[in-house]
């Protein structure tokens, strides 16, 4: 069965990746090990096949990753011969670039902005490919495919270039760079259907499994070294799965029996909560995402 809309989205994403390779000197692909970045790697391989991916993968590691994600990351990059560059939030903390948050809701989510910007500067990256989609959150609805960032990595929603037809203007001044989002027009469901169609391996935490969790402000957090219990809280064992694989301190699980891709697609298609709805950091304020984006978050 031909899936015409996925073919169109794939073709568009490949086109964007090739424009990136052609228009920039030192692009890199932001890699988190999550499903979106795994789709990005597949698309990058297709875009340049039979040549290898002409740019490195950059992983900003908070140190609080799910071990399943890291294992898959290392296996995949070995298999396809991609260049992987890892920069850690721990190093940024050790170098005194950032200060670790404290308290039961401590998260390294904000700290990784500094690590990311430092890494982009160190690698002289002029184009960072990301797997963000416009459907994820309101503030992203106006994001461009080629998103211009100033010398401080900041995004100014008032100063973005109009994008017409399929013509992308990647010109910039020295020190400025672009964030490039080939999956802009994809939805969460498209990503899952593409993973199924292309048979892409994803970390096991996306599938239903039993795990000890604690429910905090409506978010189910996994038991790990980085999450400590507050007064009155207790670990409970439940069948859950994750919809994103960010930092363990703020990535919430959902109660779900979906153990196969087909079941996940079924679940996503009828979902009543967006995938970001399970992220504690977005609930902090109504304009949370916009604030982080202005500072250079993806």
């Amino acid at each position: 069965m031909r899936n015409l809309h996925l073919e169109r989205l794939e073709s568009e994403a490949i086109y964007i990746m090739r424009e990136t390779a052609a228009q920039f000197e030192r692009p890199c692909l932001m890699f988190s090990g999550g499903k979106d970045s795994l789709v990005m790697v597949r698309l990058a391989r297709k875009a340049f096949w039979p040549a290898p991916i002409p740019f490195p993968l950059l992983h900003v590691d908070t140190g609080h990753n799910f071990p399943e994600t890291i294992a898959l990351r290392d296996r995949l990059t070995r298999e396809i011969g991609a260049r992987l560059i890892v920069r850690t939030v721990q190093d940024s903390i050790d170098q005194g670039r950032v200060k670790e948050e404290e308290g039961p809701n401590a998260s390294r989510n904000l700290l990784q902005i500094t690590t990311l910007l430092d890494a982009l500067g160190e690698l002289k990256t002029d184009a960072a490919l990301g797997g963000a989609r416009r459907d994820e959150e309101k503030a992203r609805a106006k994001e461009r495919f080629f998103s211009h960032r100033d010398r401080f990595g900041q995004w100014d929603p008032k100063n973005q270039r109009p994008e017409l037809w399929h013509i992308f203007n990647g010109r910039k001044r020295p020190g400025e760079h672009f964030r490039i989002f080939p999956l802009s027009n994809w939805t969460e469901l498209d990503v899952w259907e593409y993973i199924l169609m292309q048979d892409i391996e994803i970390p096991s935490i996306y599938f239903a499994h039993e795990r000890e969790i604690v429910e905090r402000d409506g978010v189910l957090l996994a038991k790990c070294d980085y999450v400590s219990l507050a007064n009155g809280e207790a670990w409970t064992r439940e069948t859950v799965r994750f919809r994103t694989v960010g930092d363990m301190t703020c990535t919430g699980a959902i109660r779900s029996p979906a153990a196969t891709l087909e079941e996940i697609i079924e679940e996503v298609a009828s979902a009543r909560v967006t995938e970001r709805g399970a992220r504690a950091d977005d609930l902090r304020s109504e304009a949370a995402m916009e604030d982080r984006k202005r500072q250079g978050y993806f």
Binding site: D135, K138, A139, A141, K142, P157, K158, P162, T187
Partner: peptide
């Protein structure tokens, strides 16, 4: 639903092209 950025929400107008998805 379609009013994305905070500045717009404050002014009550949309000022840029926003993309929405449904199927």
């Amino acid at each position: 639903v379609t009013d994305g950025l905070r500045a717009e929400r404050e002014q009550g107008i949309t000022i840029d092209v926003a993309y929405r998805y449904f199927s």
